[in-house]
């Protein structure tokens, strides 16, 4: 087990992420870090994975958690721990994409996917009944980001906080993202 050096989880009581963070900040006990990672490690990694690739997602996940290890005073409790964690992850991802010159998604952020694809492509994709993951990858970066965050359980306000965009912008991205997915999966009803 990768975290075999940690204390057995069964011996620890159930804590919220914020409580675990406070305990880890004050004690530096790896047991609490393990529980934090167990709570949100996979969530963050999958979010980053959908926005980049496995290597980058793993690297940025590691950076985020190491930030927590090295600078335990960074989280001030102004938002939920998960919101803070995803904010860090998202910012690092954008920085890294810009550094790698892979950031090329702004142009299409407010446009529905249907307008980006020619009718032949839409028809083809619908016929192929693309897998969910593949459908997601067809979405523009920012639409996919908003949708992923919503599916991850974040509220509109929290997504707005993570992405540092107005709530109205997030609502538009969600609407466009879902319209596109509905088209790809054959659902015609508008769902915002």
């Amino acid at each position: 087990m990768a975290l075999s050096f940690f204390l057995p989880r069964s011996s620890a009581p159930e804590y919220s992420a914020e409580q675990l963070f406070s305990l880890y900040r004050d004690s530096a006990n790896p047991c609490y870090l393990e529980q934090l990672i167990a709570l949100h490690g996979n969530d963050l990694y999958y979010f980053l994975l959908q926005q980049s690739d496995a290597a980058l997602a793993g690297d940025i996940s590691q950076q985020c958690w190491l930030t927590l290890v090295e600078q335990r005073g960074n989280f001030l409790g102004l938002s939920s721990f998960k919101t803070w964690l995803f904010s860090i992850g998202r910012n690092r991802l954008l920085d890294e994409l810009r550094r790698l010159q892979r950031w090329q998604y702004q142009q299409s952020e407010e446009e529905p996917l249907a307008e980006l694809l020619c009718p032949a492509q839409q028809l083809e994709q619908q016929q192929q009944q693309l897998q969910f993951n593949q459908q997601l990858l067809l979405l523009p970066f920012l639409q996919r980001e908003a949708l992923m965050l919503q599916l991850e359980g974040f509220s509109l306000a929290e997504i707005s906080q993570i992405t540092q965009q107005p709530a109205q912008t997030i609502k538009s991205r969600l609407r466009y993202a879902k319209q596109a997915l509905q088209q790809l999966s054959g659902v015609n009803n508008d769902n915002t």
């Binding site: 790896p30 990672i37 996979n42 963050l44 990694y45 496995a54 793993g58 958690w65 190491l66 290890v69």
Partner: peptide
């Protein structure tokens, strides 16, 4: 199906 890789966990640990 896509958990955080063990290598990352090891590095953090």
């Amino acid at each position: 199906k896509h958990p955080l890789p063990g290598a990352v966990l090891n590095a953090i640990a």
